[in-house]
Structures are given as C-alpha cells and as structure tokens.
Design a protein around this nucleic acid. Structure first.
Length: 326
DNA sequence: AAGGATATCAACCGCAGAACC
DNA sequence: AGGTTCTGCGGTTGATATCCT
C-alpha cells in the first residue's frame, strides 16, 4: 500500500513551536474547529505538517488540559489502569481528565516506573520484582489464585448457545489464569472502538490484562448480545454470521473495599436497591453524550464534575452495558 | 565555574485501521 | 475490490533543564 508523505517536508518547520505558531493554531481551531489536520497548516498559514499541528493542539494547546503536577490520586489511578490496560496510554488518558496520553506516557517512564521499582514492583508486570514468571504458576500463591479464580468464574450455563441468557462472570481479582477468557472480548471491544485501531499493540498488551490491583476487583460477565442488539444486527447486516454469537461483556462489577453499597445497572439506566433510577451515562460523566437517555443526573448535579470515564465507557473501549458495585 | 551525567518532556516517526473514492 | 488518504497510537528521539562532582 503506497502512501504519500503527510506533508511537504522541505517546506515545513520542525522542532519546538514558537509563540506565533501557537497563536495561529489556536486562532484557527477556535474559528474552524478541530479536524482536517492535513489541510489545516496551509489554511492556518503554518509551515508545519498536519500531524505536528494535531499533536501540538492535543498535547499542549487544548484549553481543557490540566497541566501541573500529577496528584497522588492520579498516580495510583494510572498504576491501576496500567495494570489492567498495559501501555494503552490513550485509554489511560481517557480516564484522566485534562491529561494527555503523551503526558501520561512520559510521566510513567520518568516517575511511576521508578516509584514502582522502589516499591519492589516490576512496572511491566506489576508483580514483585523477584517474582519471576516461571515460578508464578507453581508457587503457593499461584495455586490459591487458580482456585479462587475458578470459583469466580460463575457461568450460569455451560455454553453460549443462541437464544439462551448465558452469563459468565469473570472476576479480575485473582484472575491471572483466566486472562485468556477475557482477552478475546477485550480485544474485540478494543478493535471495534479504538479510534486509531491498533491491533498489533493490543496483542502485545493483552497478556497483561490481569489482576494486579488488590483493591480493585473487576468482574466481567460475558453473555450473548442483548435482544435489541440482535435485532440491530439482523436488520443492519444481511451477511450476519448468525451461527456465531459474538460474546458480549455485560457487566463490570467493581468490588472496592471502601464501597460496599451496591450500584446495579442495566442498560443505560441503573437503579439503586432503593429503586432510585439513575442514568448510566450520567453516572459516568457522559450525560451529554448520545448514550445519555435522561435529562437529569445523579443527585441533581452534573456527574461530569467527577471527570472520570472509568474503564472507557466514554471512549467505548470497554462498552459494558451495565455496571455493578458491591 | 565547568562540564559531565541524568532527568524531563515536547515533538517526531512509523505503523496500522478506518474512511473514502 | 483495491488503492489512497486521513487519523490516531505507542515508541523513540533530542533539546533543554537540573543535578552532581
């Protein structure tokens, strides 16, 4: 597949941006909005390649960037997300409002890696440095892990047959040996929802999607698609592979040590046990998105103030249809 | 004060999927 | 269907700042 260079390199500036270039870019995007990066430099009167403009805007000039030092909470969130997602910086950044993937990537490489090493944790595997991979499956902890994991696979049905309401619950707590069970689902979700789509890298990081966060227990329930989705598939895709039901990740159960009250959701709205119905999209800070089906938000306040789109519900990477907190 | 080592982070590069034609 | 373009991603580089001797 041939491709032309993204710009006339001979006529473009490189290196650090000047104040004037920044001003031009900001002014242009304010007037015309983002997008069409290839044609933007010329239209904005910049001697830069489109990619460079995009990067400058996204990583530095965007008005919603937070800047400043990372907080301890952000540190810990990055560590947890990295333990789940690996080097998927854009996904991690999607859960840290005001932070960019580049910023987080740099921060990881310069600060957090060292921080974890000082704690005796391998930043690549999130395991103790002296816990070599070959011994992992044979030590006593690993045995216990396997047992616990098996117990956590709560499969209501032995198969994923068409027409059944099979749900498989996978707990990420102690979930190392069952990584392969969710690997396919996450990869599928990621490849459908990742904007840039980079399966090459997803493959590289998926083996790391396993429990390394002792206080964040993520459970995935896998079951056939929702009824409405099947209808959608039937109507929109004449070449649907009806003999093959793509398993769906249905639930994420957050078992957080400090949050014992249940938050059960179903579809776009969720209900507290008391019967209070909340909008799932609102509860996750995406009340203005197309996912939002209500006009009110949790507790009458804009949940976007939380800023978090935890686990990709905004970006759609992990398009869980319901969320359950225990 | 000098200069070498190390840390930081903005920017670049190449790749790959999506979208378009 | 296949070629081309656009876009976004993660890895890497290199300029600058800071620290250390």
């Amino acid at each position: 597949m041939g491709r032309s260079p993204c710009c006339e390199k001979a006529h473009t500036n490189k290196g650090a941006w000047t104040k004037e270039e920044d001003d031009r870019l900001i002014a242009y995007i304010r007037a015309h909005g983002e997008g069409c990066w290839r044609s933007l430099p010329k239209a904005a009167g910049l001697l830069r390649c489109g990619k460079s403009c995009r990067l400058r805007w996204i990583n530095y000039l965007r008005p919603d960037l937070k800047r400043g030092n990372f907080t301890e909470e952000e540190d810990e969130l990055i560590i947890k997300l990295h333990s789940l997602l690996g080097n998927k910086w854009s996904l991690i950044a999607g859960r840290l409002p005001g932070r960019t993937d580049n910023e987080i990537k740099n921060y990881w490489n310069t600060h957090i890696r060292r921080k974890l090493l000082n704690r005796g944790i391998d930043p690549a595997t999130h395991r103790p440095v002296n816990d070599n991979p070959t011994s992992h499956h044979t030590n006593t902890n690993a045995t216990a892990t396997t047992t616990a994991t098996a117990a956590n696979i709560n499969n209501n049905n032995s198969s994923l047959d068409v027409g059944t309401t099979t749900t498989t619950t996978i707990s990420f707590a102690n979930a190392t040996p069952i990584t392969h069970l969710v690997k396919e689902e996450v990869e599928d979700e990621a490849k459908h929802n990742s904007d840039g789509g980079d399966r090459r890298k997803i493959k590289n990081t998926l083996p790391e999607i396993q429990e390394r966060c002792p206080d964040l227990n993520l459970e995935l329930r896998i079951s056939p698609p929702h009824h409405h989705q099947q209808q959608q598939n039937n109507s929109s895709s004449s070449s649907s592979s009806s003999s093959y039901i793509q398993p769906q990740i249905q639930h994420v159960n957050f078992h957080h040590h400090h949050h014992q009250q249940p938050l059960k959701t179903g579809g776009r709205t969720s209900s507290f046990p008391s019967g209070t119905t909340i909008c799932f999209a609102c509860s996750l800070g995406i009340e203005n998105s197309k996912e939002c089906s209500c006009t009110t938000s949790l507790n009458g306040t804009s949940s976007s103030s939380t800023g978090y789109d935890f686990l990709g519900l905004k970006t759609g990477v992990l398009d869980y249809r319901s969320l359950e907190m225990k």
